[in-house]
Design a protein around this nucleic acid. Structure first.
Length: 391
RNA sequence: CCAGGGAUGGCGGAGUGGUCAAUCGCAACAGACUGUAAAUCUGUCGCCUUCGGGCUGCCAAGGUUCGAAUCCUUGUCCCUGGA
């Protein structure tokens, strides 16, 4: 039911194009998933989804569980029907990222491609994590209620959600975690993937379980993890964070791990998707991405264009559409920067809608151009073009 | 005409003798955002500054006081009842 075929390769890098086939159609790679955490794209009505030429989207196990939308999803007959994304390849994240984002990430106010915070370096140990983690799983506290997740629970929820690609329940560590801690967490992640595979037995035809490589910014741990995951009989791999302290750290991690993964299976770089990062990662062999940036930054008044990011606030006097060639619902109907700025000022929901659909369209085009450039040998030219506006 | 109420920084709106250049919200300005606790968060937001501080300032003009956005007088404008 799931198969990955590679169509073209870049001559001077690990970039490749391919197709990943699933029960709900295929994704052409490289592709970026739009994030629909609770099964919906924020600020875009479901009736519009079919106009967005969405190819790949991802939902979240932890948030679906805690917001009580598992039942509505099951009643609708699965996430594709619930989300009105019947022709979209859907993934679900396992909740492993929330182990970080609601744990050390929250405690230390740091992202997974972390900044470096003086005085906070490497203090992370079990004691100052607001979440309790042991070999049996993770105990969250959310809205004052305890929420438990482990491989079996996460797999069960993901089976009920019904996404095409599901991710193993892992422990995403923090850039501030010590090597000792990261190694311990990696041990759990490595044990848990076996539990996930076990729990997934019988569902392999319907959903593809991707294993996740961890190991922080430690070369030997990353190599150990990639080598270990490579031995497993899974249809694809995720590469998870912590991804170091800088972009270069992240690129190093990709260079370390990807050569150790089987060439004939897709690799999904979890949670990454800034323009430059997409090029650098594709170049190192990444096939799939997901990222909140297109949708989140839209709500934060940032528009993506081929000439760079644009702060809508500064465009009050500009009476043109966002991008003349764009066919997103906003550009198509002639919404101008000035109008968008005015809508943002009055907090009108359409502002969020217009900006979101445009950014989704931008990233859709970007990924298409990336694919075409790999096919016709112009990947590096395209990269240079984009990086001049997205340094 | 009578009786009340009110005028605060771009706007809304706190503050009723000192610790007030004046809480807070909005707007504005600058920045951040990478498996979404995010339509969020951070900083600036009277003028000048060598960042120590200096100056002007709460409708206007007088006054009381060591000290006034805060109390008194007059004026101007606005709102609400009454004739």
């Amino acid at each position: 039911m799931f198969s990955f075929s590679i169509h073209a390769r870049d001559k001077s890098s690990r970039a490749r194009t391919g197709t990943f086939e699933t029960p709900h159609g295929m994704v052409q790679t490289p592709e970026l998933a739009i994030v629909a955490t609770e099964g919906v794209i924020k600020s875009v009505p479901k009736e519009i989804y079919h106009e967005l030429s969405l190819k790949y989207a991802i939902v979240n196990t932890f948030h679906i569980l805690t917001k009580d939308i598992l039942r509505p999803i099951e009643e609708a007959g699965g996430i594709h029907a619930y989300s009105k994304m019947n022709n979209v390849v859907l993934a679900s994240d396992s909740g492993g990222f929330q182990v970080f984002s609601l744990g050390f990430g929250k405690a230390h106010q740091v992202g997974k491609v972390g900044g470096f915070f003086p005085g906070k370096e490497l203090e992370s140990t079990d004691e100052n994590n607001p979440i309790s983690i042991d070999s049996q799983g993770v105990e969250f506290s959310f809205d004052g209620k305890p929420v438990r997740l482990n491989p079996a629970i996460s797999m069960d929820i993901q089976h009920r959600i019904g996404a095409d690609i599901i991710f193993a329940f892992d422990e995403c560590t923090s850039p501030l975690n010590t090597k000792g801690y990261t190694k311990k967490a990696l041990g759990r992640t490595h044990a848990w993937i076996l539990d996930c595979i076990q729990a997934h037995k019988g569902h392999e035809e319907r959903q593809a379980l991707f294993a996740i490589v961890q190991g922080g910014f430690f070369k030997d741990l990353r190599e150990e993890s990639a080598s270990y995951m490579a031995t497993l009989d899974v249809p694809g791999f995720g590469i998870g964070g912590s991804l170091g302290k800088t972009k270069d750290d992240m690129y190093d991690i990709l260079s370390w791990t990807i050569p150790l993964l089987p060439d004939n299976k897709p690799r999904h770089l979890l949670g990454i998707g800034q323009v430059r990062d997409i090029f650098e990662a594709v170049e190192r062999g990444v096939d799939l991405f997901d990222c909140v940036i297109p949708t989140r930054e839209a709500r934060h008044k940032v528009l993506y264009t081929k000439n760079g990011k644009i702060a809508v606030r500064k465009m009050r006097q500009v009476h043109t559409v966002f991008e003349a060639h764009c066919v997103c619902p906003a550009c198509k109907t002639g919404v101008t920067y000035a109008q968008l700025a005015a809508l943002f000022t009055e907090h009108h929901p359409d502002a969020f809608y217009y900006a979101t659909v445009h950014n989704i369209a931008f990233f859709g085009r970007l990924m298409k151009e990336v694919r075409e450039s790999i096919t016709n040998g112009s990947f590096h030219t395209l990269k240079a073009e984009y990086l001049s506006f997205y340094p």
